[in-house]
Amino acid sequence: MSETSISATRVIDAPAEDIFEVLSLPAKHPQVDGSGTVVSGTDQRIQQTGDVFVMNMHAEAMGGDYKMENHVTGFDPNKLIAWKPCQEGTPIEHNGWEWMYELQPQGPDSTQVTLTYAWSDVHPKLLKKVSFPAFPESVLEESLENLAAAVSDK
Rank of each mutant, 00 (worst) to 15 (best):
F53K: 03
E102L: 13
A82W: 06
S35W: 04
N95M: 14
V113C: 03
T90V: 15
D65A: 14
T4M: 07
D51F: 02
E142Y: 11
V39T: 10
L127W: 08
W119A: 09
W99A: 01
S120T: 12
A61K: 13
A27L: 10
I81A: 02
L126Y: 06
V11T: 12
Y117C: 01
E93R: 11
P26G: 07
K28I: 01
A61F: 11
V54E: 13
H123L: 05
K128F: 10
P105L: 04
G50Y: 03
L23H: 01
A16N: 03
S131A: 15
S5A: 14
V139F: 08
A16R: 01
F135N: 11
A134Y: 01
M62T: 08
C86P: 00
S143W: 01
V32R: 00
L126F: 10
D109Y: 13
M55F: 07
A82K: 04
T116F: 03
G64V: 08
E102Q: 15
L80S: 09
I6K: 01
G107Y: 07
W119F: 12
A118I: 00
W119Y: 12
S138I: 05
E102N: 13
N146I: 09
A148L: 11
W99T: 02
P30H: 07
L140P: 00
A134I: 11
W83V: 04
S138M: 09
V38C: 11
V122K: 02
R45N: 07
A61G: 13
S2T: 15
E93V: 14
E142I: 11
S138W: 06
G89Q: 09
D18W: 01
D13V: 06
E60T: 14
F132H: 05
Q48M: 12
T49V: 13
S138F: 06
T116M: 07
T111N: 03
G36S: 09
E17F: 08
S24C: 12
G89Y: 05
D153I: 03
A16S: 12
D121T: 10
L25K: 12
E69V: 09
I46M: 06
A149I: 14
P77M: 05
F135W: 13
G50W: 06
K79N: 12
M100W: 03
H94I: 06
A148M: 08
H71T: 09
L147D: 00
G41F: 04
S40T: 09
L140R: 00
N56H: 14
P30T: 07
V52F: 05
D33C: 08
H94F: 13
F53M: 09
P124V: 12
S110E: 11
A148Q: 06
P91W: 07
E17C: 05
F75H: 09
T37W: 11
P108V: 07
G41T: 04
A148E: 08
S5Q: 12
K28C: 12
I12D: 00
P26H: 03
S110F: 00
K28A: 12
A27Y: 03
N78C: 13
R10K: 15
T4R: 08
A118D: 06
Q48W: 10
